[in-house]
Amino acid sequence: MKCCKCNVEMIEKKTTFEYLGHEANYPVLRCPVCGQAYVPEELAKSKIAEVETLLEEK
């Protein structure tokens, strides 16, 4: 995975996610220069969705 803006390879880095006033983190690919992130679909549909549901008190 390459960041097109900075033209560098992306590295996995612990990234903070925020929702409903709470934070949690997960390692995702980030550009070491500009910080741009890449969240793959599987992550969005599984773990992220899970945490969102837990926080939404459903």
Binding site: T15, T16, F17, E18, Y19, V28, R30, P32, V33, C34, G35, Q36, A37, V39, E41, A44, K45, I48, A49, V51, E52
Partner: peptide, 26 residues
């Protein structure tokens, strides 16, 4: 959005979303 590009033609391969915000400050 996931897409491929060929010349001036862009083909959208996939679209998905989530509600959490991502903190991208380096």
């Amino acid at each position: 959005t996931v897409y491929s590009r060929s010349g001036d033609t862009v083909t959208v391969e996939n679209v998905y979303l989530h509600r959490m915000t991502v903190r991208e400050d380096a």
